[in-house]
Write a protein that binds this DNA or RNA. Structure first.
Lengths: 238, 238
DNA sequence: ACCTGAACACCGTTCAAGT
DNA sequence: ACCTGAACACCGTTCAAGT
């Protein structure tokens, strides 16, 4: 085998992170193993530790890296409302491109802010220009970012790992749904045709294969309309 | 040792689930191990498998059980807006009581709907009474439930597991925050005093110890105001 | 039916040793 | 500095065997 010149390392932090991302995209987060990843890179497991320190750090680093993709270029949308709506759609699309990382986005506090800085700066700028007070900017910022990340992360949440036989839990689940008592639960019974496999707690397919586009649009539009009202009521008082 | 009468099992599904919940509450989700849980119950690991089948199923079952606590009794709130606001607060409080399960709520599609049925029935009833159309009920339902579960689950997301030295990442993180370039990122610099440790992607403490009450209230109020506008605009058209 | 006791096939991580 | 090779202390899960 050709010997690589000494002094030039065969690995790098970026290479390991990139390999981890493609591995998770292909095989899922549960399948990510230091040993399996090392094997896929033709290297010993311990070699990875020189760059990433630990598995949990590797996952964090990968998530932070992906967050950089979420940057939304300044759009030609003069209205702040439209900017928020468009940006929310772009963020969701980014998350849908790596659905197996969705749970990480939603559950880990540690994101390397440096990769997200341009996004945060834009968002804070838009909110300030819209007229939010210094105090309200904080709450609007948290409302908006937490909603987008949290909602999409729930949308992309995974099915239970097939425990016993292959997919019998789906049949069980649908049977349970169909057995709803229309006397005790008339509203569920009425909404069932529209809610089956589309409503949270009533679906058997993840948002990966069964996206909930219209609900997300409805949510973001409602939230932005609510922001508008919050702003207006403040103006009325001040 | 006293021998238990044969025919009366020492374990039960409920006992195992209850033990798992208290174990996770005390030691965190990562510490939950079939072996550790079995030891805490004075039993062999394999004994648990007779009741729960697998570890992932045990976690699902525990989460489903906790979801039953989320049921919100019919409140004396004639306005549907107030019902949505109060219920959102109650749901958040329930999740905060078992913060180590937050990531499960946010990342697992499989919740045993039976425990949540009373809640779903109430919510659908409130939305229908409010005047949402059959189609809009679905989107409003998903907007609301996904936002509450997703947002709070992000709020409660955990710090990175201390990798190297104890808590040096917190110092690093705060140093990074302080090093923001006020020329390149004026809006971040301006908001920093209010956003440090309070804004998503800018905090170093989980919502477990550092709750974001005002942002959540702001979010839910905005969302409900937005729902109001959605309803009104529909009435104007029809 | 319910649980023991031991085994199997894995893990993440550490560490001396090589280059 | 960077990686090998092997080891350590764990995992989840299975399975014969007991009662």
């Amino acid at each position: 085998v050709a010997r690589r010149p000494s002094g030039t390392p065969g690995l790098s932090l970026e290479a390991v992170v990139a390999a981890a991302i493609t591995y998770v995209d292909e095989h899922g987060l549960d399948a990510l193993t230091m040993r399996a990843l090392a094997a896929s890179m033709g290297v010993y497991p311990a070699a990875l530790y020189w760059y990433v320190g630990s598995k949990s750090r590797l996952v964090s680093l990968s998530a932070s890296y992906l967050l950089g993709d979420v940057y939304v270029d300044h759009l030609a949308t003069p209205r702040w409302q439209d900017w928020l709506i468009e940006t929310a759609q772009v963020m969701r699309q980014s998350m849908h491109q790596h659905p197996n990382f969705a749970t990480v986005f939603g559950s880990e506090i540690a994101v390397d802010m440096t990769t997200a800085t341009p996004f945060i700066e834009s968002l804070l700028g838009v909110l300030a220009d819209a007229g939010f007070s210094d105090d309200d900017v904080v709450d609007a910022y948290n409302s908006y970012t937490g909603t987008v990340i949290g909602w999409v992360s729930v949308e992309l949440s995974h099915e239970p790992k097939a425990a016993g036989r292959d997919k019998d839990w789906q049949s069980d689940f649908q049977a349970n749904l169909g057995a709803v008592n229309p006397v005790k639960n008339p509203h569920i019974a009425r909404a069932l045709p529209r809610l089956a496999n589309r409503g949270y707690m009533m679906r058997w397919e993840s948002g990966k294969t069964n996206p909930l586009d219209s609900s997300y649009t409805y949510l973001i539009e409602s939230l932005v309309l609510g922001f508008e009202r919050k702003l207006a009521s403040r103006d009325a008082v001040s």
